[in-house]
C-alpha cells in the first residue's frame, strides 16, 4: 500500500524533472505534452520566468507521478522533442506526506508557511486544500500534500514551522508509507 497500484501492474511514484526552455511562445506546452501522452500525472510546475540560465533559457521544475517505465518514456520523449532535460531526479521526491494544519492559517499567512516549508524541507507542496468556515479570522484547516525525499525529515520541519506560527499538526500514522 505504499504506492498507487496501477491496472498494468506498475507502481506510480513522484518524480521531479528540471527542464530548460527556450523563451518562445508554446514552448512550455510543447514540453508538457509528452508527460500526458506517456501516461504521467502532472503534479506541479514551477516556472521561473524571471531567472534565466547562463545560456539564456528559462528553468522549469516539473513534478509528476508516473510508473518507473512511464517516467523513462517521458524523459526520452522530452529529449526527442528537443527539450533540454537537465535533471531527471528519479529518486529525489519519491515519498508523499499528507498532513493537516489547524489554526489561524489565514492570519498567519498560509502562503508564507508553504514557501517556508518548501525551502526548509526540500519538499514540493503538490496539493493544498483550505477550509475556513469561520472566515479568515477564525480557526481554519488545511490539507497539504508534499512530495519529498524523506518524509520523516519533512514531517519534523512541518512541526517546527507550525509551532512557530502557533498551528496544530495532524500527521498520518506512518509518514511516507502513504499513497
Amino acid at each position: 500500500m505504499t504506492e498507487n497500484a496501477r491496472p498494468d501492474g506498475g507502481r506510480e511514484r513522484a518524480y521531479t524533472v528540471r527542464l530548460e526552455l527556450v523563451d518562445e511562445p508554446g514552448e512550455l506546452l510543447n514540453a508538457l505534452e509528452p508527460i500526458a501522452t506517456q501516461g504521467g500525472n502532472l503534479l506541479s510546475i514551477f516556472h521561473e520566468r524571471g531567472s534565466l540560465t547562463p545560456r539564456g533559457h528559462i528553468p522549469v521544475e516539473v513534478a509528476l507521478e508516473a510508473t518507473p517505465e512511464g517516467f523513462e518514456g517521458i524523459v526520452d520523449a522530452l529529449r526527442e522533442s528537443g527539450v533540454a532535460v537537465v535533471q531527471a531526479g528519479s529518486e529525489r521526491y519519491s515519498e508523499h506526506l499528507t498532513v493537516l494544519l489547524i489554526g489561524p492559517l489565514v492570519d498567519t499567512d498560509l502562503s508564507d508557511t508553504l514557501s517556508c516549508l518548501e525551502e526548509r524541507a526540500e519538499a514540493s507542496v503538490t496539493d493544498v486544500s483550505l477550509s475556513a468556515p469561520e472566515g479568515t479570522a477564525g480557526t481554519s484547516s488545511a490539507r497539504l500534500r508534499l512530495a519529498t525525499a524523506e518524509a520523516d525529515h519533512t514531517l519534523s520541519i512541518v512541526h517546527e514551522a507550525a509551532a512557530e506560527k502557533g498551528l496544530d499538526v495532524i500527521e498520518p500514522l506512518t509518514p511516507g508509507a502513504e499513497r
Binding site: 499528507t98 489547524i102 477550509s131 475556513a132 468556515p133 481554519s140 490539507r143 495532524i170
Partner: peptide, 21 residues
C-alpha cells in the same frame, strides 16, 4: 479538543479520517 469539523472534512475528501491513536 482542538480538532475542528473542517479538519475532518478535509481528511474525508482525501479518503482519510482522524482518530485519537
Amino acid at each position: 479538543e482542538h480538532v475542528p469539523p473542517s479538519a475532518l472534512e478535509l481528511a474525508a475528501e482525501d479518503g482519510r479520517t482522524i482518530r485519537l491513536i
